[in-house]
Amino acid sequence: MEISLEGKVALVTGCGPNIGSGIALALSRYGAKVACNDVSDESIAACIRRIERNGGTAMAAPGDVTEEEDVRGYVEAVLERWGRIDILVNNAAVLGGRGVLDEEAAAFERAVRVSSLGYFLNTKHVGRAMAERGIRGSVVCISSSNGWSGTAGVIAYAFSKGGVNNFVRAAAMDLAPYGIRVNSFTPTAPTPDNPELLAAGVTGVLQSPPRGGDRGAGGLGGPTGDEPWRRPERWRGERTPMVPMGTTGTPTDIGHAVAWLSSDYARLVTGTDLVVDGGARARNFAYLPAAAGDLAGPVPLVGLDGSAATE
């Protein structure tokens, strides 16, 4: 099966250097023109450089996904340049956070707002553009293992991703009469494979972050985390051996799967969730695979980034 997105135009929100950039690159390598959205001009520029050095075509689509005028503006800009949008990937999200005992109301509200309002506004305006032009397109909403099961220390993120899952089912019903498909995609803690991140020393080792006041802290967190009544937030050892396949994969794994989900081969797939997580979600809590050295692991990764990072 030779997947091709030739002639299609994609819009990817939250095109930061890990998952968003990986998805944007994959869609490009499969033939789509890609509009890269983010609130960070630096992230957009890096994503476009990565696409272009691998032979693809991309454009900037800057804006805040929670502001309707911003969304309307960059959707119209993509339509003006390329005349259509066939694929929308709702990926923008606020990562990290704190647990329910320590999260701040403003931070909780912002995290939920980005996923809920961001996914809604982009689906609304891109969906209208597709329907008006008779385009039987694809909307992919990035979920998370945190949306399906409980994890300490990310209460706002977990709440928002749980909402994403039912948004997808409802939106799929709204858009089915137009031939527009809506699905979610669930990864979990992918290991970075972007050359820029690797050059900066980001390895993505799957271990719990330290407890503390940092916004990305896991577990209970808190300003100091040293109150006498505190309990450990979570097990802090290595998690990779707990994954049945021995790895949770990379953004390239995610990109391959999103490209298929966005292609015409998935023409009847709508209102559902595609899980690419090395078996993490399927695992019974009491089951542990063999020791890390005894796991066969998956077949080698089919890479997408064919050149070294250059500025």
Results as ranks from 00 to 15, higher is better:
83 G>A: 11
83 G>W: 07
84 R>C: 02
86 D>I: 06
86 D>T: 11
86 D>R: 09
87 I>Y: 05
87 I>L: 03
88 L>S: 07
95 L>S: 12
97 G>A: 07
98 R>V: 00
99 G>E: 05
99 G>W: 01
100 V>E: 10
101 L>M: 11
101 L>N: 02
101 L>E: 13
104 E>I: 06
106 A>M: 00
108 F>S: 01
111 A>V: 07
113 R>E: 05
114 V>S: 04
115 S>T: 12
115 S>K: 10
117 L>I: 15
117 L>C: 12
117 L>H: 08
121 L>V: 09
121 L>G: 09
122 N>Q: 05
123 T>Q: 06
123 T>L: 09
124 K>V: 03
126 V>C: 05
127 G>E: 11
127 G>D: 09
127 G>T: 07
127 G>P: 11
127 G>C: 08
128 R>K: 15
131 A>G: 12
132 E>R: 14
132 E>I: 00
133 R>K: 15
135 I>D: 08
137 G>V: 13
138 S>C: 03
139 V>Y: 00
141 C>V: 15
145 S>P: 12
146 N>L: 06
147 G>Y: 02
148 W>L: 11
148 W>T: 09
149 S>R: 15
149 S>P: 10
153 G>N: 05
154 V>A: 09
154 V>H: 08
156 A>C: 08
157 Y>M: 05
157 Y>P: 01
157 Y>E: 04
158 A>L: 00
159 F>C: 13
160 S>F: 04
161 K>E: 00
162 G>A: 13
162 G>W: 07
163 G>P: 09
163 G>S: 02
163 G>F: 05
168 V>C: 10
169 R>Q: 15
177 P>F: 05
177 P>D: 11
177 P>E: 12
178 Y>P: 13
178 Y>M: 09
179 G>I: 09
180 I>N: 07
181 R>V: 10
182 V>G: 11
186 T>N: 13
188 T>P: 10
188 T>S: 13
189 A>Q: 08
190 P>I: 02
190 P>D: 05
191 T>K: 14
191 T>D: 04
193 D>A: 07
196 E>C: 04
196 E>Q: 14
197 L>Q: 12
198 L>P: 02
199 A>K: 15
201 G>C: 02
203 T>W: 01
205 V>Y: 04
206 L>T: 05
208 S>I: 02
209 P>Y: 10
212 G>N: 02
212 G>T: 07
215 R>V: 02
218 G>C: 13
219 G>I: 03
219 G>S: 04
221 G>R: 02
222 G>S: 11
222 G>C: 09
